[in-house]
Design a binder for these strands. Sequence first.
DNA 1: GTACGGAACCAAATCGATTTGGACAAGAGT
DNA 2: ACTCTTGTCCAAATCGATTTGGTTCCGTAC
Lengths: 340, 340
Amino acid sequence: MTEKRSRPTIADVARHAGVSTTTVSHTFSGKGVVAAATRERVRATAKSLGYRPDVVARGLRSNRLGILALVLRPLETLDSSLPEGVDYFLRFAGSAALAAMDFGYGLMLVSDPTREESPAAALACDGFLITEPVTNDPLIEMLLGEGVPFLSVGRDPARAAYDNWIDTDTELMTGLVLRHLDDAGATRVALVAGTDPNSWNLGAEAAYRAWAAARGQDPLVAHRPETTGESGGRAAADELFDRSDPPDAVYCLTGRHAAGVLTRVRQRGLDVPGDVQIVGGSDSEHTRSATPPITSVDLQPELLARVAVTKLVNRLDDLDRPVPPGKLHGRLIARDSTRT
Amino acid sequence: MTEKRSRPTIADVARHAGVSTTTVSHTFSGKGVVAAATRERVRATAKSLGYRPDVVARGLRSNRLGILALVLRPLETLDSSLPEGVDYFLRFAGSAALAAMDFGYGLMLVSDPTREESPAAALACDGFLITEPVTNDPLIEMLLGEGVPFLSVGRDPARAAYDNWIDTDTELMTGLVLRHLDDAGATRVALVAGTDPNSWNLGAEAAYRAWAAARGQDPLVAHRPETTGESGGRAAADELFDRSDPPDAVYCLTGRHAAGVLTRVRQRGLDVPGDVQIVGGSDSEHTRSATPPITSVDLQPELLARVAVTKLVNRLDDLDRPVPPGKLHGRLIARDSTRT
DNA sequence: GTACGGAACCAAATCGATTTGGACAAGAGT
DNA sequence: ACTCTTGTCCAAATCGATTTGGTTCCGTAC
């Protein structure tokens, strides 16, 4: 009774029901033809034995596990204690998990499987979701090589030969932000970008430079690694405002940089938005609860996640479920940092 | 070349290296005795073939997948578009994922496997992490029955026969909150609790009732389902303040209820904290960014997650890695809603 | 010279399902 | 009477590893 009784297998069910394992398999997968009466009998015995098909064994044979992997690069570079504020990536992960469940999949959070120290289990999945791939992303290289289905949010800027990515339209978004600043009276806009070579940073900077060129202005760009957070923002602000020709507006591609820039700009005795206007490229608690609140871009991680998951499972299941509607580029949320 | 070349198997490696599959297996798992020269040769052929052990096949035989499952009950009951401010669970999930990776595991987010519509893959894991089990939790019943390792954060209030849970010390925390309100001059504290029968709600209410009894006061408790969020908080406020003997302080066990109570109390013309003091039981953006900011309990989801993961993988690996230090009960963050 | 023991390696069984390729029976068509 | 379907069902192969239970070869002790 108290023995460690292992779970019943398909053979146990077959024996008790007086059929073959094939028939049991078929009644559960609905694949073969099984007489209604037999099916019922098998179902009943299975239930009475407490049988559940073993997912791993099934996965071995049929090569489908029912798991999607979400590679969360940005989390890897941060300290293990997460920054406060549940922002883009965690919201993305939460929504992706719910969407995956809706389609009968589980969502596994993993580190980049191309890293040596990555758990072997990172490969135990049917498909990958990749947020913000970097230029010549080794993971995409590997997945393409092994023929593993995947979908990236944002594209690998250097790779032309794949099309399974969803477009967050960074260029369009950058244009909206710059026009907003223009409308608010800014005459000289600087850009504070991260250093990860992903399409978000590269696309935004390219769009910014094109926009500056069209106005006949020299671009004014400061780079700080994403991981530097608010202190990186403060340093960037010093870099920009120590100049002889400081900007009167700053577009920061991350919310934490924006918060840092805001702090330092005010420390330097400048008024926001009076002397300097600030926009954050990724809405987060930092931008919402700053003083004054910072105008920023809501990237809509929930929508992006749902679209990404739907597209990926459509490919995996070879179905054509409808993709949630809505613009995939972010939406600008105007706050006091750009109200003049 | 363009054929869908399947990944090399252990047999391929064995053939090319001129050894048996057993030897290949041993060189990778480090289990048997393999001569150093042979081991190197096998390693080299494996690398040149691009061989990686198949996680699923390994999992089938050895019964270990390298995956932890995190059951996020609260997310299930909510709409699929995540409400903002459920940051406890997302922060928990993010930290749990990072901790799992550190120990060589992946973290899978799943819905409760006892639900019929739950993905089959929910069972493809080595152990479960359960947040806030409810009374007579069916999942715990099932896991105990099948002998699947698990660990719960908070305990099943009705179950005595298991000890693999970590104690968030709800009673102690409740005492700290009530004492804080007492120190701030509150004379009559009401409680707004959720309706999930978990140890958080039950433990806090029991502690509250005991405290009221010790002061010779009638307890004043309003219940609203967790899912009602701010509107539930507003309704609870009406219930409490329509009374002839309204409280002068309210302790809400969720941050969203607290935000709703705050809104309605002020709508009714009362001053916070002048007339009514408010405390939220779970810190979130709602409490941080309310006007005035609401004093609340930081449950330290990052720490809890790391402790939970460490304990679970210690059991799975039969190791005794050190558990992160620190008090597991929440910490009170005093804000303006209780500053008199 | 025989027995014993350890080092290095291997063949085959195993994990628990799915899938392939029939087998068998009952009824229909000719 | 014979073939041909069609509907059910099954035995055995298969997925890719791990693990069991040896075998072979040498060196050493007696």
